[in-house]
Amino acid sequence: MVQNTGRPGYLQIADDLRAQISSGALPAGQALPSIRELCERYEVSASVVKAAISVLRTEGHVIGQQGKGVFVRDRPPADQPAKDGHGEILDQLSEIRAVLGDLGKRLADLETAVFQEPRRSDRRGT
C-alpha cells in the first residue's frame, strides 16, 4: 500500500518494484503483475501504476511487449556496456510506434461511434 509520506505514490511503487527486481524476487524475463493486480496490491488507480511502470521503463529495468505485458529486462553487468548503444532507443521507438498504432485504432473507433453515417431512412432526397 502507498504511504502518505509526501513522496508521490507512483515513485513509492517504482521503488518497491525496483527493490524486488534488484533482490531477484522479480527475476529477468518474468512478467510484472498486471496493472489490475498492482492497483489492488497498492490500492491506487491504474494511472498511478502506469506512471510507476513508466519510471522503471525509462530506467531500463523493464520492457513492454505489446499485447503481452511488461517484463523484467535482462541487463548487462554494470561494467559491461550494451553491445549496441542504440538498442534501448530502438526498443523505446518500437514501443512508441505500437502505442501510437493502438491510439490510432482507438481514435478511429471513437470517430466511428461519434460520427456515424446517417441511416438510409434519415437521408432526405437521396
Rank of each mutant, 00 (worst) to 15 (best):
R75A: 08
R75K: 05
R75I: 14
P76E: 02
P77C: 02
Q80F: 03
P81L: 05
P81M: 06
A82L: 10
A82D: 12
D84Y: 01
D84A: 02
D84G: 01
G85T: 10
H86Q: 13
H86C: 12
H86A: 13
G87N: 00
G87D: 04
E88W: 11
L90H: 00
L90D: 09
D91C: 01
D91P: 00
D91M: 04
Q92V: 14
L93S: 03
L93N: 04
S94L: 07
E95V: 11
E95C: 07
E95Y: 08
I96V: 06
I96R: 05
R97I: 11
R97P: 00
A98Q: 10
V99Y: 13
V99R: 09
L100N: 08
L100R: 04
G101Y: 04
D102C: 03
D102W: 11
L103I: 15
G104P: 07
G104K: 05
R106F: 12
R106C: 11
L107Y: 10
L107P: 07
D109E: 14
D109P: 06
D109N: 07
D109C: 03
L110G: 12
L110P: 11
L110I: 15
L110H: 13
E111Y: 10
E111S: 07
T112N: 05
T112W: 01
A113M: 15
A113I: 15
A113L: 15
